[in-house]
Amino acid sequence: MLLTGFSIPVDMHALNLFERIRGGDGQYQAVLDGLLSDQRWGAPLGEEELLELLQASTDRKLLARGLTYLWYTGDLLQWTKLAHDELRPESLLTAATPPDFYAGLMWQAISAHPPALSGGYYGHWHYQPEN
């Protein structure tokens, strides 16, 4: 919730993907553990306080951005291309899986659906979305 604005449980799949992209060897688990065990984490935080918390280390900010991006988009390649300079990926993953992509939160955020999985009925695009 703090990172994405959605209530979702912390998801190890995204962390694993992040480790692989960065060529990490478990150190991001430690960064994540550090963040989660920070006593300010979990308390209601304003935008500035959250940023302060994330800025505690470069790794922390990088991880927060990376995980949030993965949760939002499920989209590894766009990420590695775009975020190349900042993330300096050691390995470019060549594919996400369809479930990763379909689960991206950004589609919910904009009241749309992931391409190829509308789950909708004919004509839904004609109306204002319900949510």
Partner: peptide, 16 residues
């Protein structure tokens, strides 16, 4: 693309 625009917002330090 939606992904590209999301990344741009993250670079602007948007979270939550």
């Amino acid at each position: 693309s939606p992904a590209k625009e999301t990344w741009k917002l993250l670079l602007e330090d948007k979270f939550g």
